[in-house]
Each structure stands twice: as structure tokens, then as C-alpha cells.
């Protein structure tokens, strides 16, 4: 989780990823941020985030992203 927060902070240092719970729903992250996150997570965790995973629920908070990463790793 700490590694994830570090990655996210590198992309948007102005956001407190530990606290935010509605990153997508409240428009904190825009689509360019999300694509950057997807690309970064794909590299760092060696996973393929598919279009089917691109839901607001998966990106609304750092925990949600962490759960998504864990799920994809288990499925692979």
C-alpha cells in the first residue's frame, strides 16, 4: 500500500491519496491522470489493467486501486 501511495503521489503530488474517497466521482482525478496511473501501475506491478477494470469504483480511492491490483494479480 505504501508503494502504491508513493506511485500516486509522483503522479499528482497535490492530492492526499490516503484520505480521498471519491477521486473519480468528485472529479479530483481527470482522465489523463487516470491513464497515467493505469500505465504506471501496469509497469510497477507488472499487470495488465484492461478496459473492463476502468470503472469509477476501482479508482475512487487508493484502497480501491490496491484491491483491484491484488485481484488482477490473483487472476493472472
Amino acid at each position: 500500500m505504501e508503494k502504491l501511495l508513493e506511485i500516486l503521489n509522483q503522479i499528482r503530488s497535490d492530492i492526499d491519496f490516503g484520505k480521498e474517497k471519491a477521486l473519480v466521482d468528485d472529479g479530483v482525478l481527470d482522465s489523463f491522470d487516470i491513464v497515467s496511473i493505469v500505465s504506471e501501475l501496469g509497469m510497477e506491478y507488472d499487470i495488465d489493467i484492461s478496459i473492463d477494470d476502468m470503472t469509477a469504483e476501482n479508482f475512487n480511492s487508493a484502497e480501491a486501486m490496491f484491491e483491484m491490483i491484488t485481484r488482477i494479480q490473483e487472476e493472472d
Binding site: 482522465s31 491513464v35 500505465s39 501496469g42 509497469m43 489493467i49 478496459i51 476502468m54
Partner: peptide
């Protein structure tokens, strides 16, 4: 457009390959 064009194009194989190539 974001759901059905932007994300699919950004996550498509050619685009991710291009990104990996630079990286």
C-alpha cells in the same frame, strides 16, 4: 467519449506498445 473512445484507445495494444517503447 471518455468511456468508449478515450480509454479504449489509450489502453489499446498499439498505444501501450508505443508507450513501452519510449519507456
Amino acid at each position: 467519449m471518455r468511456e468508449y473512445v478515450f480509454y479504449p484507445v489509450m489502453l489499446s495494444k498499439p498505444v501501450t506498445k508505443l508507450s513501452k517503447f519510449f519507456r
